[in-house]
Write a protein that binds this DNA or RNA. Structure first.
Length: 424
RNA sequence: GUGGUUGUAGCUCAGUUGGUUAGAGCGCCUGGUUGUGGCCCAGGAGGUCGGGGGUUCAAAUCCCCUCAAUCACCCCA
């Protein structure tokens, strides 16, 4: 039975579940377009260098998690591990470089060769947005507010936003200096990971979870005192705007985030209902070097993990509605009746009315059992006798009442019933 | 990549210290009504006990390997 399971970290998503996915996607389209965003569909694989340059060679994602392969032309390609780099690649053919604002959203599968765990798959799905070309605190705030708007619309009203500022590139050096001086003498008491982070990726020390490290981190000086006045003012304005937008947030100087390209605002959205993977969305402002460009492009954006949104919905019990049942079931006894039913079903379906019907030779009892299982409201029954008389029996399943309807009027009668049922 | 747990029917799971034809509930199919559902009753289909190897007279059960799922770490969405 386990002979044909999909590869590790991937999954088949069948109808009832797929409806929930479509809701996440449709709601994204609805909400984001209200903010002036348009959909952008980029390829699911890109030249490998798009991600290497975009995310930074040192990033863990690039180093060990990418699905990279060579195609028949000897090109090195990579299944996208995230959405931003591909979006930027697409956008560099537009006039964003000249300061024209581009607002795009996307959703789709991403691929990372990690060990699967709760809320983490190898093919996972993100819905995200990028606002590219302009720099302003209000844009950052609007972006965060839009994310919260979206979450509320998919049944997650109580997620928590954590924000922080990373300053600009020029702020980084003095701030790192400050941290280095603080951590250097204390490295002996810290975990092995932090020791290598100290050399390779100093900032990641800040979100180390080791007990010993946390204490030391907690007492670290606020590196933001080394930031320029402009950077701090930018952040203040972002927060003021969030207040004005009535978007509650928590400020956390330890929020750093994994990718190198962030500047100014960074944020993460978490939900308490999740176990170890508490993060359901994350993003921030960035400066990205597009292939073939000498200047970086500014932008702000976020990505939300769809699997995790579904997990939160489950925890909240806000995963709704099983799909609508088909209202009609057509029972046919005998070849002629079944053929007539097939015709009738076609007629109704062309009008957009869902119909289920029996196409095989089965007993009345079996067909009614099926009708019952589909949850049909009305059942049309006909056999040789009805065919000869030019009528059909219409049965109301809830009450068991039956009435005869001329065959010629069937489509209209069912249509009318359907329209009024829809109205209720 | 590291560690823990798990793997028996479509689903949820039993299976006693190894012992003959491997079970239940739900679901599915058929019948109980020459053409009437839900409830009830009866019957039926469906399993290489994840896979491979080993120990044994005998393995779903014990040992090894492997695959997969799951959880945690790591990383992130």
């Amino acid at each position: 039975m386990a002979s044909f399971t999909p590869p590790p970290g991937t999954a088949d998503i069948f109808a009832p579940e797929a409806v929930r996915w479509r809701r996440l996607e449709n709601t994204a389209a609805t909400v984001f377009s209200c903010y002036g965003y348009g959909e952008l569909r980029t390829p699911v694989f890109e030249y490998t260098e798009v991600f290497q340059r975009g995310l930074g060679d040192a990033t863990e994602v690039v180093q060990k998690e990418m699905y990279t392969f060579e195609d028949r032309g000897g090109r090195s390609l990579t299944l996208r591990p995230e959405g931003t780099a591909g979006v930027m690649r697409a956008l560099c053919n537009t006039d964003v470089m000249n300061g024209v604002e581009q607002r795009v959203y996307y959703y789709g599968p991403m691929f990372r060769g990690e060990r699967p765990a709760a809320g983490r798959r190898r093919q996972f799905h993100q819905v995200g947005v990028e606002n590219v070309g302009r720099v302003a605190p209000l844009i950052d705030a609007e972006c965060i507010a839009m994310l919260m708007d979206y979450l509320a619309r998919v049944g997650i009203p109580d997620a928590e936003v954590v924000v922080n500022t990373r300053g600009i590139q020029a702020d980084r050096e003095p701030a790192e200096q400050l941290l280095r001086e603080y951590f250097a003498p204390r490295l002996g008491e810290m975990c092995p990971d932090c020791k290598t982070r100290f050399e390779k990726n100093l900032w990641r020390i800040l979100d180390c979870k080791e007990e010993a490290c946390r204490k030391i981190i907690h007492d670290a000086p606020d590196y933001r005192q080394a930031f320029s006045a402009e950077s701090l003012a930018y952040f203040e304005e972002v927060k003021r705007a969030l207040d004005a937008l009535k978007t509650p947030y928590r400020e956390d100087p330890l929020l750093v985030r994994g990718l190198d390209y962030y500047v100014h605002t960074v944020f993460e959205v978490t939900h308490s209902s999740l176990g170890s993977q508490t993060s359901i969305a994350g993003g921030g402002r960035y400066e990205l070097y597009l292939p073939g460009q000498s200047r970086p492009v500014p932008g702000v954006g976020f990505a939300a993990g769809m699997e995790r949104l579904l997990m939160v919905q489950d925890a909240l019990g806000s995963s709704p509605e099983s799909p609508v049942s088909t209202p009609f079931y057509l029972i046919g006894l005998g070849a002629d009746a079944r053929l007539a039913n097939l015709e009738l079903a076609g007629e109704l379906r062309r009008r957009g009315i869902p119909v289920a019907l029996e196409l095989e030779e089965r007993s009345m009892k079996a067909q009614l059992r099926s009708a019952n299982k589909t949850g049909a409201l009305l059942t049309v029954v006909r056999g040789d006798a009805e065919m000869a008389a030019g009528i059909a029996v219409v049965k109301v399943m809830a009450t068991g009442e039956q009435s005869e309807v001329p065959a010629a009027e069937l489509a209209k009668r069912l249509d009318d019933f359907y329209q009024t049922a829809q109205g209720i």
